[in-house]
Design a protein around this nucleic acid. Structure first.
Lengths: 339, 339
DNA sequence: TTGAAAGCGCTAACAT
DNA sequence: ATGTTAGCGCTTTCAA
């Protein structure tokens, strides 16, 4: 069996309270300090966090429920958060709910029973009911990437409305009028904002939006491929496509690749996320880029502040801007207004 | 405060042991069962896993130390493992050590203090010293992707030697003789096996290996790009390149893309990992594909068996085969022997 | 500064 | 089948 604080007390002739005090940075006489340190190294003593947790009613564990670990966005944001939190002594319990609301709910319960001190969530269910127990218990909840209206918690998102709007503007300025959109399921806030940005900016440019140019599919690579196929087949006059998610972009690139469509001569393309992927595409893909590191930093920062019992006054709702990273996948068509 | 087992006992007039028994699937009289269930739902009682952990000396948590969460291979394997383990009531504590042996060591300590029941590791440090405390404590350790000689634990790897060998064979059969290799740091078993497979199979094909054709770099995208640049510049007669990791492949594709090298006319290429990425590359990349799902399944299976106190007789060392997924990035050069 | 003792919520003997 | 009780290893009053 592993050594306990009692063993250290016994070996040093001190009381357990003294040892505990030492362990928690309290003041101990130099000679006793030495004795304790000696005993600890001899007995290979390691604090039992479980016992500490039971006593203090804090687990120093944070849960994270995400739609898909195997997604660059989630992984990038999470690894950033994990890094920061661990530096502060917090462990991360990660649950992948595979974009399934039922599994998300189960994960929330699972983590609640384990008494995590707080929770990060890229929500699948847009009602947010699965988070209510946390909120009632006063445990910090930080939503990432997707806001939930009416839920009393912090959130860190990007401005998806402006994100797509900037992409449409880039295209219309280069003379594009028939612009397709690969849209994700409208079940979450981010996806809705992206579609809204598309419609609104077309309207601003005086272009009539055609439903034929909008493909509503799942947020998967295959759906991106299928969507591209359909948009191309039904819209011979389409000159550009915007993919409203990384997976959709990925799928769209595959479709263009397999149909031997030359980008940007035959079709211009704007993707979403992942600058590295954009560089690997031929020709280099123009993308809407999300500040993944910033998202992680802000989310972790808010969580840590809440954990330290920061003022509970009003929740934070952070909206981070995206940027367009220009590649070579967009061309200027005849009759361009700008430039 | 949250309700405890005592509250349930008080409310039902039963003893805590009876309630505990109910909670753990023991036999209780139907009428009492009902009473307990009623009290639980009225009080919103949730078992306190922390207390249970302290008592049973099992946390039902498994640690995972990986070089980089933001890597498709790690994320794919981990998400599979997490899924299986959670179904069995285990939570996953994930630590990203950023391919740094010091951080890996710290993560191992961190997780040990938290008393995880077992640990998965894609090791960075090839001595395996950071895992010794677990082994001494009799906690199951399952190595993934990289074997460590002389460490008494289970492992699930792919046959990296054969993996690269099959790629070289594919190339030599198509007449290639000047074949470059983008190799990863030789600090882990997998990387060493890949390089060994390269040398050995060239030898078998009667081709003299030239050190000029081997680029030893970091396992990063940038290093893949830099490596491609160097190999091309120094070896005008090189007709093919094998990238010995996913990141290297990614970097190599970027280099080819940015230098406007036409694949496979000017240069043939074989990458590593990620069939989806291979499809998105133009022309479709021929790759060495690892069975990520199988790796996850086998690793999780072994862990669960050990956790259930399976026979400790001899550790398992699983070697899974890879496969070549042919794309269009390899051409046949003049004087091909095969076909 | 140090020690004694209570107790966090639960499980597991043991007794009934 | 149910209840009593003794800890699991730690922190935290409260006294000394």
């Amino acid at each position: 069996m592993a050594a306990t604080i009692k063993d250290i007390a016994g070996r040093t002739g001190l009381g357990v309270a003294t040892v505990s005090s030492y362990l928690n940075g309290g003041h101990v006489r130099p000679q006793n300090r030495e004795k304790i340190e000696k005993a600890i190294s001899e007995l290979h003593y390691e604090v039992n966090e479980t016992a500490r947790q039971l006593k203090t009613n804090r687990t120093r564990m944070i849960g994270a429920i995400i739609p898909e670990l195997n997604s660059t966005f989630c992984a990038a944001v999470l690894s950033r958060i994990e890094d920061i939190l661990r530096q502060h002594g917090y462990a991360m319990l990660i649950c992948d709910c595979r974009t399934d609301a039922v599994r998300e709910e189960e994960a929330a319960e699972f983590l609640f029973r384990r008494r995590v001190d707080g929770i990060f969530n890229i929500p699948v269910d847009s009602s947010g009911e699965h988070l209510l127990p946390y909120i009632k218990a006063g445990k910090p909840v930080v939503l990432i990437d997707r806001q939930i209206d009416g839920l009393d918690c912090d959130s860190v998102c990007v401005d998806n409305y402006q994100a797509v709007r900037s992409a449409v503007r880039l295209l219309t300025q280069k003379g594009h009028k028939r612009i397709g959109l690969l849209a994700c399921p409208q079940s979450n806030h981010a996806a809705r904002q992206r579609l809204r940005g598309y419609r609104k900016s077309l309207e601003e440019a005086g272009i009539e939006a055609s439903e034929e140019l909008i493909y509503q599919g799942e947020d998967t690579i295959d759906s991106g491929t299928a969507g591209m196929d359909r948009l191309i087949d039904r819209n011979p006059d389409m000159t550009a496509v915007i993919a409203a998610s990384y997976r959709m972009s990925f799928g769209a690139v595959i479709a263009a690749n397999e149909r031997n469509i030359s980008i940007p001569e035959q079709l211009s393309m704007v993707g979403f996320d992942n600058p590295q992927f954009a560089r690997a595409v031929h020709p280099r893909l123009t993308i809407i880029n999300q500040p993944v590191n910033q998202i992680g930093d802000r989310a972790a920062g808010i969580m840590l502040r809440r954990l330290c019992g920061g003022e509970d006054s009003g929740k934070e709702h952070v909206w981070l801007p995206t940027e367009i990273l220009e590649g070579k996948s967009v061309r200027t068509v005849a009759g361009a207004s700008g430039e």
